[in-house]
Write a protein that binds this DNA or RNA. Sequence first.
DNA 1: AAGATGATTAGCCATATGGCTAAGTATTAA
DNA 2: TTAATACTTAGCCATATGGCTAATCATCTT
Lengths: 111, 111
Amino acid sequence: MANHLDALFAALSDPTRRAVIERLTTGSAPVSELYAPHEMALPSFLKHLGKLEAAGLVRSEKVGRVRMVHIEALPIAEAEEWLKRQRRLWEGRLDRLSALAENIEKDSHDG
Amino acid sequence: MANHLDALFAALSDPTRRAVIERLTTGSAPVSELYAPHEMALPSFLKHLGKLEAAGLVRSEKVGRVRMVHIEALPIAEAEEWLKRQRRLWEGRLDRLSALAENIEKDSHDG
DNA sequence: AAGATGATTAGCCATATGGCTAAGTATTAA
DNA sequence: TTAATACTTAGCCATATGGCTAATCATCTT
């Protein structure tokens, strides 16, 4: 995937993975705890964790036999920024259109 | 896909599709114009447009033999909101942690 | 009416994704 | 030192995804 936004948005496109992110906003947790609510085999779940980590949304390190996982704020902010920029560009265009409409209105009175 | 955020984030996970969104923030355009900058066969490109439309990010209607495409603001705002909420939850937790740290500090002086 | 234009449909292909089981490794607990 | 715990690795499977060509349809333009 060329752009890292690719991996970022792809990571967020799955409900299991978004649920993990939602859980992690309340604090770090070991794999076993993150896994508990999900009705799938552990290896399947670990693939999801792997994608989150590959996208940079999450980090983890092993403490004894337990792997602790924590959220990484920056990539979330980056995705948010991309969306915000698109929304603003779009809104900016609407503003310019209505300004234009006003000018046309004015012109029709002047002219 | 259960949640409509699934389709939304999945639609945004491809550079061709994000490029289309970026182009559309500057105004509606016919398929042929949206297609022009992309080095792939038209049917391939149309699949991308189809995903954007399925995700609700885009609408289109046919005028003569031309199909005009325009952006739909709401889904972008929804994706943005989900991200914002996660960021705030996480930041809120940091605030609580530092408040807790201050209390512990205070207690250690009192006790 | 013929030809060009803009899109659409059908169908093929390779790779990615999301799920599984089975078996293995490394720590900790008894 | 044996057993339980917490992952980890390997490998299989079905479906989804992203690309293609070839053929078709619908609407202008000449």
